[in-house]
């Protein structure tokens, strides 16, 4: 009995170390739009950056805290899933990491190889919404859309303290985007930087 407990503990320890190693030592490298990207984990966390992403958004009313699930059928994912998504879907062109923040917030820093699709552009009133959906791979017959060729998306925003990504996901669903093609990275910039993961400031 005691022996098996020791064994169990050591398995947990080993797998825990393995995960830690994967996130820290193993860097994530991939190619997006002909450019090479590498995500590493810094030994020291940039607290100043974390503070900037965590500053309350003055335009936001209420608590502005994200729910754990953004919408029915949309999976909420973590950092390791985002990195897997980068090396697979983003690298082979079938997926895109979508930053739902406004451009002025994005300029503080963003996840490498992500693209900015600000929340207002996906609102029903925007006359160019269909053009954006076509750019994401949808096919159109007049106003009718087909999403069979649409890209898989990972949507993020500043983090759990904002609701841009959640609202963006619901706008996408309203436009007909299939829930199974959307993933919600709830951690956003707040958690990404708090973990010391690579960010980008200048548009590549």
């Amino acid at each position: 009995m005691k022996r098996s407990l020791y064994f169990g503990a050591s398995v947990i320890a080993v797998s825990g170390t393995a995960l830690f190693a994967q996130a820290q030592a193993d860097q994530t490298s991939f190619n997006f739009n002909g450019q090479d990207f590498t995500i590493t984990r810094a030994a020291q966390v940039n607290l100043e950056a974390v503070a900037r992403f965590s500053a309350p958004d003055l335009s936001c009313e209420g608590k502005c805290l994200s729910p754990m699930v953004a919408a029915d059928g949309v999976d909420t994912i973590g950092e390791l899933d985002v990195m897997t998504f980068m090396t697979q879907a983003v690298a082979n062109g079938s997926g895109l990491i979508v930053d739902a923040r406004l451009p002025e917030n994005r300029s503080i820093g963003f996840i490498p190889a992500s693209v900015n699709v600000p929340l207002p552009t996906m609102e029903a009133e925007n006359p160019f919404r269909q053009d954006i959906l076509l750019a994401l791979g949808a096919r159109a017959l007049g106003d009718t859309l087909n999403f069979s060729d649409a890209m898989d998306l990972v949507v993020f925003d500043a983090g759990p303290g904002t609701t841009d990504a959640q609202r963006m996901i619901n706008n996408l669903l309203d436009a007909g985007y299939p829930a199974e093609k959307i993933k919600y990275y709830r951690g956003g910039m707040q958690v990404w930087t708090a973990l010391g993961l690579t960010t980008q400031e200048q548009p590549s």
Partner: peptide, 20 residues
């Protein structure tokens, strides 16, 4: 009928140099 067919199609294409 056209819209129903277009919408419910599950056919996928492969993009090669921007063409489907």
């Amino acid at each position: 009928l056209r819209e129903q067919a277009f919408k419910s199609s599950i056919a996928q294409t492969t993009a090669i140099n921007g063409a489907r």
